[in-house]
Design a protein around this nucleic acid. Structure first.
Length: 294
DNA sequence: AACCAAGCCAACCGCAGTTGT
DNA sequence: TACAACTGCGGTTGGCTTGGT
């Protein structure tokens, strides 16, 4: 059984086979003695390289990048699903793009942050040694920004856009909900489908996850766009006997103007007068049982 | 020119779901 | 219904290329 890179002759044989039989019965390519490759290998080669209309050899456009970022925030690592929104791109393409992007972001955030003001510099923990939670929170915040914008967009056409309706519904938030203050929250108008209060397990998962550390930016005011729904979904919770979602109120607010994060965290982020006390929350064990416990 | 790190991408593996017998 | 084969997906690996020093 042959493995490794495909040769042009093999591609020709595979193309010829698909032409005659269609993209199916991959295993019969081997059983008929056409190629010394597994069915899986043949299918992969077809899907990723030989299928017509693939955008091979061209980088993701800014629009494609935006779509991937938005859909990844929405669907998670469902690369095949995300790829269906990107004509000419395969799940492997999307996966590789995302993986490279994550590496780039992680590497960038490992570097010391540039600071216009040095007044706090000596007190800020080293990002490379002590604060992985800070690094991942930046990534998370970036996702919030992207996602909150997409949700805002979708809310404007809520009644006409079933997809958007589904998205909002899964978050159990009513459309056009004023999210600027916890006190403005009203019970969801839509029957919740998936939203659940975070469980102990969720928080244990958060603490291990590269992208989901929850405690650093715990004021809605810090989230670009004021209180994104994904912030609500992750950090708010519902009392057992109440349909009201609750947000923590006990944390002192940060001044969002002290933090500036631009879209491409890989190269352009910067911080002005970075508040030292924000790190006080990075090591809090979760989850609390009520807002008062935060 | 040589070296190295990072980027990129093709291809593999394991697993889970689906389909056929 | 049970099992095997097939298919599709997501994670991972490794090799080649590119860019910086």
């Amino acid at each position: 059984m042959r493995k490794g890179p495909w040769m042009a002759e093999e591609d020709e044989i595979l193309l010829d086979y698909v032409k005659k039989h269609g993209p199916r019965d991959w295993s019969s390519i081997r059983s008929k003695g056409l190629l010394p490759r597994t069915g899986k290998s043949c299918r992969l080669r077809w899907v990723n390289k030989l299928k017509p209309d693939l955008k091979t050899g061209c980088k993701f456009s800014p629009e494609e990048e935006r779509i991937v970022i938005e859909l990844q925030a929405r669907f998670g690592n469902k690369w095949a699903r995300i790829a269906t929104y990107l004509p000419g791109r395969t799940d492997n393409d999307v996966k590789n793009f995302w993986s490279t992007r994550q590496k780039r972001l992680a590497r960038s955030l490992q570097k010391p942050l540039p600071s216009k003001s040095n007044k706090n510099q000596g007190e800020i923990p080293s990002l490379t040694d002590e604060s992985p939670t800070f690094e991942v929170s930046l990534l998370d915040l970036y996702s919030f920004e992207e996602e909150s914008q997409s949700i805002q967009d979708s809310q404007t056409s809520y009644t006409d856009n079933q997809d958007a309706a589904t998205m909002i519904q899964t978050r159990s938030l009513p459309p056009n909900q004023d999210l600027t203050s916890p006190h403005n929250l009203t019970p969801p108008l839509i029957e919740p489908l998936e939203w659940k209060p975070p469980t102990q397990l969720d928080f244990e998962h958060f603490s291990d996850s590269a992208l989901d550390f929850p405690l650093l930016f715990d004021t809605p005011e810090l989230i670009p766009g004021h209180g994104s729904t994904s912030f609500q979904q992750k950090f708010a919770w519902q009392d057992k006997d109440s349909s009201f979602m609750q947000l923590p109120e006990s944390l002192p607010p940060f001044d969002k103007n002290n933090i500036k994060i631009e879209r491409d965290l890989g190269t352009q982020y910067s911080f002005d007068d970075f508040p030292v006390d924000m790190f006080d929350y990075a090591d809090q064990p979760g989850p609390p049982t009520s807002p008062a416990a935060w």
